[in-house]
Amino acid sequence: MPTVTLGINPLTWTNDDLPSLGTSTPLETCLQEGREAGFTGFELGNKFPRTPDALGKVLKDHELALVSGWYSAHLLERSPEEEIAAVQDHLNLLKQCGASVMVFCEVSRCVHGDQQRPLSQRPHLSENDWQRLCSGLDIVGDYLKSQGIQLVYHHHLGTVIESQTDVERLMDSTGEGVGLLLDFGHLRGAGGDPLIIAQRYSTRIHHVHCKDLRFAVLEAVRNRDKSFLNGVLDGLFTVPGDGDVDFLPALTHLCEQGYQGWLVVEAEQDPEVAHPLTYARLGYRNLHDLAEQAGFDVANATH
């Protein structure tokens, strides 16, 4: 029985793309409430210290592990060698604090951080762009693997890799050094099917974000040509089991294929509307139940 560990992203409390959300909430509150809800690990956010000693101490104080941390790549704007140079501090932080995967997203031309630009204006890649991105990812992914860190590519609404077709082409055009982060909410938000992606690329999936979606809000965001961030404010995302995404088929398949790693609750919401501790507890309980239904053994050990 494969074992998974449940982690959470600080987006439940604060938001990197829209800092006005949860701006006054201290990191201490995020970590304390996340641990209280049952999670044993956190992904990084903008309030975390960025030196290994300081980060290691604050996580240890709360008996938490470092799950991973987002890295904004610019492979369409700089060479793989320049990207490798740029990633060194982040790589060192992850390595020294015990993470095994790096959440990696190409953000050139992205619109998800711009509240004024609708998702319909998200960038698309030319043939030359595809070749450049995939070859660059292979080089960076192989380098990170040589350093003991697995690159996991985060397909994301409002970026160059958004749709299921994008994900499939990316995976089919890169090697094992480029892993995949399966994000349920972003894939369903782009009209994709998590089960199909899990079936096709289970050996490449090394990280999972369990973000739920409210389909009625998604429809309104698309119909009214809204931005990603305005969708967040409208309540587009929520914790697993509180929206309309069916997690069980893909999670069950991943379990059958032997996935072991983190399942991470990632649900950016307005903390003034969605009380963070309440939703963290709900997310933990629902994800724990889903993981067990899928056949996983859920690790409960403290770190």
Rank of each mutant, 00 (worst) to 15 (best):
58 V>T: 12
283 G>F: 00
36 E>V: 13
117 R>L: 11
17 D>Q: 14
89 D>T: 14
91 L>I: 11
30 C>V: 15
182 L>T: 06
26 P>L: 06
124 H>R: 12
123 P>C: 00
158 G>V: 10
241 G>L: 02
2 P>L: 07
18 L>K: 12
24 S>Y: 07
274 A>L: 11
61 D>E: 13
147 Q>D: 03
76 L>N: 03
205 I>Q: 05
87 V>M: 06
81 E>T: 11
40 T>R: 13
94 L>N: 01
32 Q>R: 13
171 M>I: 09
271 P>E: 14
258 G>D: 13
123 P>M: 00
259 Y>R: 05
194 P>G: 02
218 L>F: 07
10 P>F: 07
176 E>D: 13
78 R>I: 10
12 T>H: 13
216 A>E: 15
242 D>S: 14
73 A>N: 05
33 E>H: 05
136 G>A: 08
148 G>A: 08
224 R>Y: 11
145 K>G: 10
158 G>Q: 03
258 G>L: 08
47 K>Y: 06
292 E>Y: 00
261 G>R: 02
136 G>T: 09
175 G>D: 08
238 T>M: 09
288 H>D: 14
201 Y>Q: 06
115 Q>H: 12
257 Q>V: 12
154 H>G: 09
144 L>P: 01
140 V>E: 01
141 G>Y: 01
83 E>W: 02
218 L>I: 11
195 L>F: 03
193 D>C: 09
134 C>P: 04
160 V>M: 04
66 L>E: 02
215 F>R: 12
73 A>Y: 01
132 R>V: 13
48 F>T: 09
263 L>E: 02
30 C>Q: 14
113 G>H: 08
72 S>K: 07
80 P>D: 00
267 A>K: 04
191 G>N: 08
194 P>L: 01
21 L>M: 14
267 A>W: 04
295 G>F: 06
154 H>S: 09
281 R>L: 10
45 G>W: 02
203 T>W: 06
19 P>L: 11
257 Q>S: 13
128 N>H: 11
294 A>F: 03
259 Y>Q: 04
218 L>G: 12
252 T>G: 11
102 M>F: 06
55 L>I: 04
291 A>H: 02
261 G>P: 07
147 Q>R: 04
293 Q>V: 10
82 E>T: 02
265 V>Q: 05
303 H>Y: 11
53 D>M: 03
194 P>M: 01
141 G>K: 01
260 Q>N: 13
64 L>W: 02
239 V>M: 03
142 D>R: 03
271 P>L: 09
193 D>P: 05
260 Q>C: 14
156 H>M: 09
84 I>A: 05
240 P>F: 01
206 H>C: 05
32 Q>V: 15
71 Y>P: 07
215 F>D: 15
287 L>K: 00
133 L>Y: 00
27 L>P: 08
219 E>A: 15
200 R>Q: 15
183 D>C: 03
20 S>H: 12
114 D>G: 02
21 L>N: 13
297 D>A: 14
200 R>M: 12
23 T>L: 08
55 L>V: 04
